[in-house]
Simulated scan of single mutants.
Amino acid sequence: MTKETPEQRLAAAQFALPPAPTPRGNYAPYCAITPGGLQWVSVAGQVSRQDGVPMSGQCRTDDDIAPASRAAEVAMRNALAALQAACGGHLDRVAQIVRLRGFIRAAPEFTRHAAVLDAASAVLRTAFPTQPLPARSALGVSSLPDQTWIEIEIDALVASA
């Protein structure tokens, strides 16, 4: 019996990964260092852009949670695509996602940032069901690239190839 990969679990849940993102500025899509046999990979912020088209919006009321959550799923898939590239194309090398940061474009009165970011955590749970969830920060911001709903960063420990 073959072990199901994170990519297979994501595809089965309709979370197929896009191609790895191309930087839209002077930064790398990820940075990797090797502490003690594992590689620390920090994925640069990935916004809710699907097939190159920004998913734009701003959280103002609870009515915005559903579309922002869908955007959070897309941003997480983009972050996982960058992580997959750092893993040589194989997410099963991920030993642990240790940090998730979500920046939610929100009006000052919006306070349900964590509810939006739960959708990104659900994508991680789908890909890595046996791993503990990472430490997480959900932050409201006034502006993001292309007025997108959300930007996500992840840090992970990856087994050496």
Results as ranks from 00 to 15, higher is better:
M1A: 13
T5S: 09
T5E: 01
E7I: 04
L10I: 01
A16K: 10
P21D: 02
P23R: 02
R24E: 12
G25A: 15
Y27C: 08
Y27M: 08
A28P: 03
Y30S: 06
C31A: 15
T34N: 14
T34S: 14
P35L: 13
G37A: 05
L38Q: 15
L38S: 12
V41A: 04
V41I: 07
G45F: 11
S48L: 14
G52V: 04
V53Q: 15
G57M: 03
C59L: 09
C59F: 05
D62S: 15
D63E: 14
D64R: 10
I65P: 09
I65W: 11
P67N: 07
R70Q: 12
A71C: 00
A72Q: 01
A72T: 01
E73I: 00
N78Q: 12
L80P: 09
A81W: 00
Q84D: 11
Q84F: 05
C87K: 02
L91I: 06
R93W: 09
Q96I: 01
I97D: 00
V98S: 09
R99A: 07
R101P: 10
R101Y: 13
F103P: 06
F103A: 15
I104Q: 02
A106E: 06
A107T: 13
P108M: 05
P108E: 07
P108K: 06
E109V: 15
F110C: 11
R112Y: 11
A115M: 14
V116M: 07
D118H: 14
A119L: 02
Q131L: 12
Q131H: 13
Q131F: 08
P134F: 02
P134W: 02
A135M: 10
R136Q: 13
S137I: 12
G140Q: 05
V141T: 03
V141K: 00
L144D: 07
P145D: 07
D146L: 13
D146P: 05
Q147H: 12
E153R: 14
E153C: 10
I154W: 00
I154R: 03
V158M: 10
